[in-house]
Simulated assay, not measured.
Amino acid sequence: MNTFEDHGVIVTGAASGIGRATALKFAALGARVLIADLDPVGAKAVVEEIAAAGGNSLAVVGDLSEQAVVDEVVERAVGAFGRLDVLVNNAGIMDRMSALGETGDAEWERVLRINLTAPFLLTRAALPYMLAAKRGSIVFTASEASLKGSAAGAAYTAAKHGVVGLVKSLAVMYRGQGIRANAIAPGPTATNIQVEAGPDAQGPFVIGPLIGATIGRRGSAEEQAEAIVFLASDASSFVNGAVLPVDDAWAAV
């Protein structure tokens, strides 16, 4: 894997889980990393961990579905690093595994806003800097739920399918201008993401047995981070518009 010496990198949802592992990996390869997250304690801890290892990072805390926070993230990254080479749209939340008929407006709007609208806003804000430099790599964390209908509820499934559409549109629209867009589709991964399903919900009743019958082993956040860094690197220079399952063959079942 080539290094990212002095590259400017933004990683969202980087206070824990896949985002944290990704930020640490980029920093270890020489990148200067902006940690974007809603959790101030976790974000500070990651910045301190990178600093202790001799790396360079800073944190912006806020809700990435708000335009003002998105603008701050991009402006601070460019101001601190002088460049923006990589954007990792990783932040996300789960739904309640709700079937469509039991999905309320609040659940639908929150999941779509954070999982699809927020990465749209951040990518739109980052693109002018990448286009000016005539290069940039954008990596999204999609999901197994972006590939099938049996891995999550209606809201999460729709949002992650939307992420895949966004990736493919970006790849086609900007491939002639030095921009690449790809995604990983993680299978079950040991993180702190929570599912709070109701006891009588139809979604988990239907989905649970399907997942149990087809799922492989649980992966680690570090394994997902390795795939993200690969897609961001020059080692994948001819990979554009791809959705890479990182799931121990769950998508192949």
Rank of each mutant, 00 (worst) to 15 (best):
L166P: 03
V253H: 10
V9L: 08
I179Q: 01
V88M: 14
W250I: 08
A80W: 05
A251S: 15
A152V: 04
E109S: 09
N182K: 10
R113M: 05
V11G: 13
G136C: 11
N182G: 08
G241P: 13
K148S: 14
F26I: 01
L116S: 04
G42P: 07
G92V: 08
V46D: 01
P199C: 08
M173S: 10
L64Q: 14
V195P: 00
L112N: 06
L121R: 03
V46N: 01
F238W: 15
I18C: 10
A106Y: 02
T191C: 11
R32Q: 15
K134G: 02
S137C: 14
A225S: 14
S237F: 15
F120P: 02
G8L: 12
G79F: 09
G212M: 10
M130C: 09
G149S: 08
R180D: 04
G178R: 14
E222F: 09
V206K: 15
L121Y: 01
A252Y: 10
N56C: 11
V243N: 05
I18R: 00
M97Q: 13
E144I: 12
V246M: 03
V9A: 06
P119I: 10
D71K: 06
A190L: 14
E66N: 11
F26H: 01
R124M: 03
I228A: 14
Q202E: 07
A68S: 14
G187L: 10
G176E: 09
R110E: 11
A118C: 10
A201E: 15
P209I: 02
T103F: 00
V41W: 08
L166Y: 01
A190Y: 10
N90V: 01
V70K: 02
A53L: 09
M130F: 07
I211K: 06
T141N: 12
A159M: 06
L84D: 06
L112R: 04
A52P: 00
S143G: 07
A158I: 07
D37M: 11
V229I: 07
A155R: 08
K148T: 15
D39L: 12
G92E: 05
R180L: 10
G136A: 09
E66F: 06
A91G: 08
T123F: 07
N240E: 12
L244K: 05
E75T: 09
G162Y: 09
V253K: 11
G203I: 09
V167E: 06
S169K: 05
T103P: 01
V69F: 03
S233P: 15
A23R: 00
Y174P: 02
V33N: 00
T157N: 06
P119V: 09
A126H: 03
S236Y: 14
L127R: 04
E222A: 15
I18A: 03
G8S: 12
A142V: 09
L84W: 09
G54Q: 13
A151K: 02
G79P: 04
S169D: 12
L29G: 00
V253G: 13
V172G: 04
L127N: 05
F4K: 00
E144K: 03
L122V: 03
L131T: 02
N182E: 08
R76I: 02
Q224M: 15
Y174G: 03
I207P: 00
